Each structure stands twice: as C-alpha cells, then as structure tokens.
Amino acid sequence: MRRSGERRIALLMGSFNPVHGGHLAVARYVLERELAEEVWMVVSPQNPLKSPEELAPFEDRLEMVRLALEEIGEARLRVCDVERDLPYPSYTIHTIEYLQRLYPDAVFTILAGSDIADQLPRWHRLEELQRLVRFLFYPRGGGVASPEMAQASGFEIDSTSIRRTLASGGDLAEDAVPEAVQAYIRERGLYGAAGGADFYFERGRSYYRQNDFGRALNDFNRALELEPGHTAAREMRDMTEAIFNFRNFDLYNP
C-alpha cells in the first residue's frame, strides 16, 4: 500500500544509443495513464549484457536525452545521470539501492520492454531487485506486457536500426529521432562511418577505463587518422600503446 507523501517514479533505464521516439512514447504513455508521477530516463554507461562496440560516449548519450526532453518540454520527464559515478558494471540493483538511499520518499518502478523477459534470469541479484521495485512491461518484440501497458503501441523503433540507417547515410523515419538529437548526431559525427575524431577519442577513453586497451588503441589511432593534430588522442594513444605493449611482452622469451 502506498504511504502518504510518497512519490511514484518510473525509471526508463537504458543505453539510449541514441534516444528515439519509442523511448519517448513509452514515457509519455506512462504519464498520460497516470501510472507514475514522473518518468526518469536513466542513462547507463555500459549495460553488462550488451557489447560496447557501437556505444557512443556516455556524455554524448546523456546530452542527447537532455536535448530530446528539452524539445518535448514536459517537466515530469527527467534525465538521470546517477549511474555515471556508480561502480562499473552498471547493475540495476546497485542503481536502485543508491536511488532509494537518495530518495527515501520515492516508490520506484522499472519500465522495461516485454522482450527482456528471457533475459531477467541473467540479471544480477534479481530476486532482491524484485523485492525492491515493481516491473512494468510495455509491449516490444514479443513477450507479455503488463496489463496497464497492454494497449500501448508504436514502440517498435530500435536504436540498432537507427544506427545502421545513419551509418549508411539513409533517411530516418519521421519522428524516429527528435530533430535536436539528429542535429547533435550530425554535429558530433556519431554512428556514421565518418564519425568525428572526438567520437573515437571519447569511446577510446571509455575502453581505456575498462582496461580494454586493444580497442582503446584502435579508437585513438582512428581519431588521429581523422584529426592528426588531436593532442589529447595522441597522448592517450602513446600511453595506451605503452600499456598494451607491456602486457603483451613475453619476459621469458626476449
């Protein structure tokens, strides 16, 4: 039973790589049906169950969500960057425990696509998580939606298809991605084959922080191919190269 003074907050958690019309439709539907008083879009630095290969830098994805919400102008929709400073990997249980400490007056619900049902057993400390929060499933790619969301529709847009379209130079469907977000993607050179040097530099730094020095080195080199005068990329490249070479040097076979 809900206690007096509690805030009902729905968390739409994801990579938002990039944020698109499907994400925003889910959030609006929840508010329109009064299933929550606010919806927070929680940007994840790295989903432990997804490959980081095509993941844009966290700060870019965060900014794209900010731009999308500014374009909508709905005060009950908020961007949440709480996972930026939490330990890696970004397990949902850690985020919920942290948010409950920060907002003891809040009751949190997790919004998730019905297609993740098969993945739930792989979630870290799932049984504890289910005791802390309620799940609200919206229809997406199969699976059974929650009764409150069963009539929702139009959420079949996916970030993977959007990235492929952008990389091939194709045109996105109307309302697939907010205009402000599309402009930001073009400005930053995200997702395209001709992505800007800063994109590869920031992604390389992300790999570096994860100790994935091979991928980091590839991205720093790519940044320097696009912008030879990129001083920060050169410094990180040299530092990463030294670590990478040291780790792969056979001390017993000079």
Results as ranks from 00 to 15, higher is better:
E174G: 13
A193T: 14
A117D: 02
L67M: 13
A193E: 07
V43K: 05
T240V: 06
A152Y: 01
E34L: 13
L31P: 00
L102E: 14
Y208W: 13
E83R: 11
R66K: 15
L217R: 02
R222H: 12
G204I: 04
R84T: 03
M149C: 14
R28A: 12
S159T: 08
A223C: 06
E148V: 00
L190E: 06
D250L: 13
D105C: 06
P104E: 05
A242H: 11
Y208S: 11
D81N: 11
Y207S: 07
S159D: 05
Q130M: 15
E34V: 09
L102Q: 15
R186W: 11
E6H: 06
E32V: 15
D115M: 08
E83K: 08
D115C: 11
L172V: 03
R122V: 01
G73R: 11
A106D: 01
P18L: 13
L120I: 12
P48K: 06
D105G: 02
V65K: 06
V30S: 02
E241G: 08
G143N: 02
L226I: 09
W40P: 03
R164Y: 13
E241V: 03
L11V: 00
E202A: 14
V82E: 06
V181W: 00
Y252E: 08
F137Y: 08
F213R: 11
D81G: 12
E6P: 06
E174V: 14
D171Y: 00
Q210M: 15
V26D: 03
I243L: 11
